[in-house]
Amino acid sequence: MVPDALNLTNVHTFYGDSHILHGVSFTLPSGNVLALLGRNGAGKTTCISTIIGFLKPRQGEIRLFGKRIEGFPPERISHLGIGLVPQGRRVFPSLSVRENLVVAERRRRSTARPWTVERVYDLFPRLSERHAQFAGTLSGGEQQMLAIGRALMGNPSVLLLDEPSEGLAPQIVAEVGRTLGRLKEQGQSIVLVEQNRKLALEFADSAVILNTGRCVFAGSTLELLEDERIIEQNLGVYHGH
């Protein structure tokens, strides 16, 4: 039996004394895309930060292909094969586009066709045109492409994307969408956090909905689309917010 790419079991995370994640569990089978949804403040970024090792869970297990990784430092988790495209992009502003990619390059024996700077440039020709420019001077869309390319340079077996369409113009969102489609075709396992439900559910095989740090739905995308009530209660416009 092939172990799942990523598996969270009963994960509890705190910020100081405030209990943010209350026993989150979900499973990402290898090669799948999982949409992690929920309103503002639901705990999506907290969940991603826990997986990548920015936050240590107080309880629970996180497994990458069966191997426990919870509580490891982020660089170790990165070496083990998780790539992060963080909310707000967080490219290194004083590094050139090329340097942003080069510092993240990591060879992995298991990858048949490793990502290289050239391959990222093929995926995003705009980055190639701007290769010597400081990343801090790029447009929001270009920074998003760079953040995705940077994460790919680590040849991750699981890619975490936290709201990659946030604050981008519609045609850039479409380009991000096309990229996600291509990565999925290539068999990349992905956890996709999105407020843009349409974009997320277009690619996702399965979905998890968080509400105030608890999983209120976990199932296939089709099941979710049939359940108007769950969507309305947890993702619909929340009055009084």
């Binding site: 430092p73 982020p74 660089e75 990165s78 590094l95 340097e99 942003n100 080069v102 993240a104």
Partner: peptide
């Protein structure tokens, strides 16, 4: 470049494996 990445955003630098 890795040192400068750490100066820019050390948490993110760790997340890309530095």
């Amino acid at each position: 470049a890795m040192i400068r990445a750490g100066v820019d955003d050390s948490q993110m630098a760790r997340a890309v494996g530095i």
